[in-house]
Simulated scan of single mutants.
Amino acid sequence: MPQIIRMRYIRLSVVLLLAACGDGGSSPTTPPTPPIPPTPVATSVTVSPTSLSFTSIGATQQLSATVKDQNGATMSSASVSWSSSAASVATVSSTGSVTSVAEGSATITATSGSANGTAAVTVAIPAPTDTIITVMVADSAASSITVGNQITLPIMVDMTQAAGLDIASLQVKVTWNASIVTYVSVTPGTFGSLTLNETDVATGTFLANLFNGTGTKESFRALLLTFSGTSAGAAAVEVEVTTAGNELGQSVLDKVTTRKHDVTVNN
């Protein structure tokens, strides 16, 4: 076949081929529709911390919950509900705040959808290292007045460290330097009945017997003593406990400690 005829035949074949395939892609192609991502679903809940320990009643600690979906992504806006397996031991608020109620164990559960996570709670009140009833003169260790002025000093009984003890009877002996301060009067406190022996107050000695038939485990003011400044100087008002008994009539004197109060009288 002559060369010219062969070239014309090739060109014609190309033209026919292009016509069969269209205009060479000048028409736009519709892009494929992207797949719709799946709706996030809570599949795991992690509670932090995973355990709480309480050593006192009425204390609070905070828990937090992290919710993740099926792809492991954090769902920061996911709603979380909280519950306690033993509300008599520990309660939990709608925000994950846990409050100790009584000794024991509880499980706190955080739930989001069908997923949940837990934290273990233990409430254990340690036994005091030493059980002490403190009988003290006044709320503080020292005070000052001027000559001719008065000061009232309560005899305080502190039961805050007397775990498991009650007190029903108490005899106290109060002494002071009568040349610096003089006794003026006594007022009963909040504890039971009061029997007084004021015969030696002129020389600086005062005796009081207190009795409460049902006993108490609460701190209280046994009585209030009023003194007047007589002359300039320092005087220690001291208390001695000669008898202390519980509701069963048993002595608790070995559990008692005392604290004095220093009074400075100025001109």
Rank of each mutant, 00 (worst) to 15 (best):
V89C: 07
E103A: 15
V98C: 09
A65V: 03
A102G: 06
G117A: 09
A73H: 05
A106T: 02
T111E: 03
T66I: 15
K68F: 13
V89K: 06
S94Q: 02
V98F: 07
S76F: 14
W82I: 04
E103W: 07
S112N: 05
V80Q: 05
S112T: 00
S94C: 02
T66S: 12
S83C: 00
N116I: 05
V98Q: 06
S85A: 12
A86Q: 13
N71E: 15
A90D: 07
S84A: 06
A119K: 07
S93M: 07
A73T: 08
S88A: 15
S79K: 13
V92F: 02
S112Y: 10
G113V: 00
S97C: 10
D69A: 14
A73V: 07
A115N: 09
A102P: 00
V67F: 11
N71S: 15
T111R: 03
V80G: 01
G72D: 15
V80H: 01
A102S: 15
K68Y: 14
V89Q: 12
T111V: 11
S88L: 09
V92R: 04
T91C: 09
G117N: 05
S83M: 09
T107Q: 11
E103Y: 02
A90V: 06
T74A: 12
G113M: 00
T91A: 04
T91Y: 06
A86F: 03
V67S: 11
A102H: 08
N71T: 15
S88F: 09
T118Q: 11
S105W: 13
T118F: 01
S77L: 14
T91R: 10
V89M: 05
A73Y: 06
S114K: 14
T111G: 04
S81D: 07
M75K: 08
S88Y: 07
I108V: 13
A110C: 03
V67K: 04
T118I: 14
N71K: 12
G72E: 14
S97T: 15
S81G: 14
G117R: 04
G72H: 05
E103L: 09
T99S: 10
A65S: 08
S84Y: 10
S94I: 04
M75H: 00
E103T: 13
G113H: 01
T118A: 15
S85W: 05
T91H: 03
S100Y: 11
A90T: 13
K68C: 08
S93K: 08
W82Q: 10
M75D: 04
A106P: 01
V89L: 11
S79P: 04
D69F: 13
G96T: 02
S64Y: 13
V121H: 10
K68S: 14
N116Y: 07
M75I: 12
G72I: 14
A120L: 15
W82G: 12
G104K: 07
S81Y: 00
V121Y: 01
S93G: 11
A65Q: 05
A120T: 13
V67W: 11
A110P: 03
A102T: 08
A115W: 08
T74M: 05
Q70L: 13
S76A: 15
T74L: 08
V67T: 02
Q70N: 01
A110F: 00
T91F: 01
S83G: 09
N116Q: 09
S84G: 02
S85Q: 01
A78N: 14
T95W: 10
